[in-house]
Design a protein around this nucleic acid. Structure first.
Lengths: 174, 174
DNA sequence: GCAGCAAGGTTCGGTCAATGAACCTTCGGG
DNA sequence: CCCGAAGGTTCATTGACCGAACCTTGCTGC
């Protein structure tokens, strides 16, 4: 997002949100984090994002409290970025936007489906499980290949792991 | 959003959505349209957006089918931009992101509240009316000043009209 | 003991979108 | 005839994004 990245004169909660997650790539980073991606190198190969931009976004999201940077091994020191509670709560917004795109921008049908783990039912546009009526949190969502899954053109290792049914937030590297 | 405005290599519905509504200012334009703003000059004073950027965004949203440009008077010819059904369906996504910001980024409390017109109850984070249990569409939402409404610093004519309780999608001019 | 490699970055020049100020056109009213 | 409102377009400046190259730390194999 070029120049002033804040909407200072907009006294509105949505503007505050967009200052943080409205920049280019940021919401895709959050989506990948919901999918279970945690490492710098995995975000890199899955998003095709410039290295400098990824580093800057991870730092901004960490500073804002959406991600937490933690060391998962000493020697050699290695870091991973994990969604905080605040970050996981972005799931309804990500899902709503995703669903809107499926309904209006993807004539070929959804590439992925999101179902409630305990009921096996596809979420409705609000992120509710039609079966049990509860608002499903990211932890209780399973993602599965949808009718248009074959269109998936990516062949990187992260995409392959994500192409099988799996629960959201499950770490990609064991 | 600078340079390549598309995420070509991302085969994902969310990426398609972000190519359209993920650019700087675009989602704020949609929010204003949900509030009932329809005219170029009203978007202009309410958003403090550069004129060229506004013109470009309105055109892109119209081309994508989110807005419809219509002539509301001949002689002198005057245009207005109205949300299509596709545009109105963005409400759940806008609301979810808004609600997330209220919950995590606004310690002073919400500036505006969204309530179900028929029940008078505040929507839950998924956009459901807790009273009647239905997913509330934009047409049935009333917005009201919230606890932190006094913080509203803007004094333009559009902000003044929006500071009173009103139904979403109600046109601002007459 | 040295080469190679993986992870996680930083640096750097070129490009292109955002910005804001100035300008333009069409029409109606006084 | 002049002014103003609505709805734009044009233009120079600036800074974020891009991608390629480079760097550092600590393993692992020979």
């Amino acid at each position: 997002m070029a120049l002033g990245k804040d909407y200072e004169r907009q006294n509105c909660a949505l503007a505050r949100a967009l200052e943080l997650v409205g920049e280019r790539w940021t919401l895709l980073v959050v989506r990948d984090a919901l999918y279970g991606v945690r490492r710098y190198s995995d975000f890199l190969v899955h998003l095709d994002i410039p290295r400098a931009v990824l580093a800057e976004r991870l730092q901004a999201l960490t500073a804002a409290g959406v991600l937490e940077k933690r060391r998962y091994q000493e020697s050699p020191p290695r870091e991973e970025y994990v969604l905080t509670e605040m970050g996981q709560q972005l799931w309804p917004a990500v899902h709503a936007l995703h669903r809107w795109a499926v309904d209006f921008l993807l004539p070929e049908g959804p590439i992925r489906l999101y179902v409630h783990t305990t009921c096996g039912t596809r979420l409705d546009p609000a992120g509710i499980c039609p079966d049990c009526g509860t608002l499903v949190t990211a932890r209780d969502v399973e993602m599965r290949p949808g009718p248009a899954a074959a269109v998936e053109a990516r062949t990187d290792s992260v995409s392959e792991k994500l192409s099988r049914p799996r629960r959201l937030l499950t770490p990609i590297h064991t």
